[in-house]
Design a protein around this nucleic acid. Sequence first.
DNA 1: ACGAGGTCCTGCGAGC
DNA 2: TGCTCGCAGGACCTCG
Length: 278
Amino acid sequence: MPELPEVETIVRGLRPRLTGRVLTRPRLFHADVLSGVTRLRLVRALAGNRIEEVTRRAKHAVFRMASGHRLVIQPGMSGALLVFPRPLRSAERRYAVLVAGLRKGGTLVYRDVRRLGTVLLLDEPAWRAYTARIGPEPLAADFGIGDLAARLSGTRQAIKKVIMDQRRLAGVGNIYANEALFRARIDPSRAACRLGQAEVARLYRAVRAVLTEAIAAQGTTFRDYRTGTGERGSFQFRLDVYGREGEPCRRCGGRLATTHAIDARSTTFCWRCQGPPR
DNA sequence: ACGAGGTCCTGCGAGC
DNA sequence: TGCTCGCAGGACCTCG
């Protein structure tokens, strides 16, 4: 679920509440989210460890710990990261995957209904290798049109699939891929390497604009997503295409269509403005 | 290199 | 009312 704007919103909420705080009594309730670390090693590494910095990379929340480890949480489809200024109530423990107390009060929770998320514990070299495999941040100040063009060249895969590929571009998921392609008036099924310069430029501006606006709206809440303090986002009210199948296109008034032909993910688009996917 | 399809997991709404 | 089915914001894998 959470894409770049949602994780960015979560991280901004957590940062002032977690930076400098020491984790106590960490507990992992579902080991199936772990990747490359055992429950025992994770719990031992977190207990008594201080959070130095809370950041985002792609769709991951990254907690840099005083020990030099990074706790990396990728919320998957249904994950939420929440901080409470008190112990958890019983209803708040539902679907909890990882819970840790905060010394001097408070609780950090990673909650994930479907548990498609991932929890990693990486030392410095492992973190460097991990982040190196992920594509550039589309909102970075030094990310330009030429960088996007370079990431799109050399593949005939559908442009929608390519911009969702985390190795090529960080943080764009299904919702914002749909939205950006609509804004850029590009057929989602077009081969990435066949886009013209003007189309790449439109896509560049569309991706940056939709992500920026979604962050300002605190993300898109359909069901599970919450900010780091439990609020809903509001970008669901501003979507042009995602979730609007059959409704009128905001640009031309035509009926929006949905296909699952691209990477088996729902793609909603306007035939008239974006042309037919093959 | 690429597309198709399956896997992980649970909940919910539609339809019967 | 109760059941089954398909689908859901992600990412990984194998197969041909």
